[in-house]
Design a protein around this nucleic acid. Structure first.
Lengths: 343, 343
DNA sequence: TTTCCACACGCAAACGTTTGCGTTACCTAC
DNA sequence: GTAGGTAACGCAAACGTTTGCGTGTGGAAA
């Protein structure tokens, strides 16, 4: 089990100095052609690869991007990562992914860990707990140390930095609008508790759409779900015998769960009730009936976020005090779970 | 925008040497209590964090694990990652995730990149292209440089190293067995082309189960799918008017697609045809009807893989020439897509 | 007063690179 | 023969740590 070969070893073998080897490998004219070739041949033979760690230490940059997301087992976030990886790799950056598991503490730990030398900048979507706690010191500290941060999706208004979001309210309004435009009038919404920023925004969009149609909002048509993992009973209870003709769910899970319980309650989708979801995931696509939904274009978000970050990383420090917020357009993907009603 | 504070800066401010600061922070008895407290107070104030890069360089280890998977947008792999992260974090390791996107080249690039200083060891599941190409030099090189590798799921028999797998053949046999035991006799299989190791193994398991029941295998009940992304038409064609009473799909996508096309062809699941899948993902769980499937226990795989790797990393080099293969038990998760037939 | 010891701290090397500049040695030209 | 130039290479510092060992200072014991 041979060890990694270093410049020093090559130097010793060839009886030249370390700097000669280094320069030879970079084709410096300072070194004779002869020596250059000898060194390169030797390096290839022993499969020399410069040690990234040493380079990072010397250059004070790691060429890697840290991505921290609330959940790794989540289709939307993985598509975002896909986008990030795409542009990162193009530009010669590595990507480190950590999941906070929606825990504030783990988010702090991960961020500090990566911030102390492992990454040059961050792309992150904050944990649920962080949104609840409103404690952002770790993010601010990271930025104070000169490392750029790009927030996406679950962002924090109070923090000034680059951001990539969708217009959640607008998307939700479009979704609700679609339901209204096909004739639905009693639209229930399945949303999250208010401290989840995107949930609240989507709820707002829903309300806005109703108002635009002069429809009075009704408390009993709004369900704010706290415990996402055990939402089925709650949704079932909520939907039972309710006089509605449509359901807008702010995420995929709520949408399919609604479809499931409505099914069990003998309702036909989309004939009796239309359903529209949010996030174009694998579930929406393959469910029967396939679900009409709002696509967040996760990959695009990742691409834009990575570009913003790399711009900051490679820009001169002079222009770096300007922050941008990119809003990705959502789009309505029409499938089988919504249908024009006859009334 | 202040920079990261280093030992050197603290030393200068306090007018002591760097080593004194370093030792003071580690509570060395060499340093007077007075100085220790002063240094620590100062360090806290300026939020000193040791630079990981420098530590890595010094210690010749990074305390990070590299994970390379074929696809990041894939529920099974993300659950595995979840398991890896769990034990890695417990043991103070960082996790870097890269996806090869099933491309051989990207797998090589990622591995070499991480191998040149960013990670101490690897957990990886090889890309489709790699399995096809049978070119494993990058993995062997990495191991030759003294970095342990743990292969999981899509492994390579020719490489000697730690491995974590499920008994794919056995799982497939159990799946098929279940279909046979509830009375099905004409069982079709939707599988992948043979160069995908797990696909082939699952096909073998299917055949074994048939033989155990003295059922003649029939070529026309076996569909080997190459283009996973556009499998619907192929599956629809294959299943049309076929005299079968059950379908065994080697992955989730094939299973739901089968369910969908059978639905369209007017068959009832599970009344007319039973379906069983492989991989307990989000689709199987939420589909209607929910899908009976074989669970691979992805998180367990991740946990075991991480443990194997860390054992190697932290063990003395003397015992390190022994490699283990851990086989994770699969289990049958019975849901609504399979049902005892009356015959 | 001398000797010794312990305490408190600093020096320097090491990890693997890169790079500006200094240093040879040889050659050319005058 | 000497000055000057140039080709080819080595030195050393720097990135931020850690740590064994050397060193200076002081006090106490003899």
């Amino acid at each position: 089990m041979k060890q990694k070969v270093t410049l020093k070893q090559i130097a010793k073998e060839l009886d030249v100095s370390i700097s000669t080897v280094s320069k030879a490998l970079k084709d410096s004219v300072e070194i004779s052609l002869d020596t250059r070739q000898k060194v390169k041949a030797f390096a290839k033979l022993y499969n020399y690869k410069p040690n990234n760690i040493a380079l990072s230490l010397k250059n004070r940059k790691t060429k890697t991007i840290g991505v921290i997301i609330p959940e790794i087992v989540h289709h939307f976030f993985t598509t975002v990562i896909g986008g990030v990886e795409k542009v990162a790799n193009e530009k010669g950056y590595n990507v480190i992914i950590c999941s906070s598991n929606n825990s504030f503490d783990k988010e702090v730990i991960n961020l500090e860990m990566l911030a102390s030398g492992s990454a040059d900048g961050f792309i992150l979507s904050v944990a649920k707990e962080t949104q609840l706690k409103k404690d952002y010191h770790h993010i601010e500290e990271t930025m104070n140390q000169g490392m750029p941060v790009v927030l996406f999706d679950r962002i924090i208004d109070e923090i000034v930095c680059d951001k990539v979001i969708i217009d959640d309210a607008k998307g939700a309004q479009a979704a609700t609008n679609h339901l209204l435009s096909i004739g639905c009038r009693k639209v229930a919404i399945l949303t999250t508790v208010d401290y989840i920023s995107v949930g609240k925004l989507r709820t707002n969009g829903y309300l806005r759409a109703l108002r635009a149609y002069d429809i009075q909002e009704e408390e009993e048509l709004i369900l704010k779900i706290e415990d996402v993992d055990n939402c089925e009973a709650e949704i079932s209870e909520f939907l039972r015998n309710k006089d509605i003709d449509a359901v807008f769910a702010v995420n995929e899970l709520f949408a399919v769960t609604a479809a499931k319980v409505l099914n069990e309650q003998g309702k036909k989708i989309p004939d009796d009730i239309s359903i529209i979801g949010f996030t174009d995931g694998i579930l929406s696509k393959h469910f029967i009936p396939s679900l009409t939904t709002i696509s967040q274009h996760g990959e695009d978000m990742g691409i834009r976020a990575a570009k913003l970050l790399i711009d900051k990383l490679e820009g001169d420090d002079t222009v770096s005090e300007e922050y941008r917020t990119v809003i990705i357009d959502t789009s309505l993907i029409q499938r089988q779970s919504t249908k024009k009603t006859k009334r």
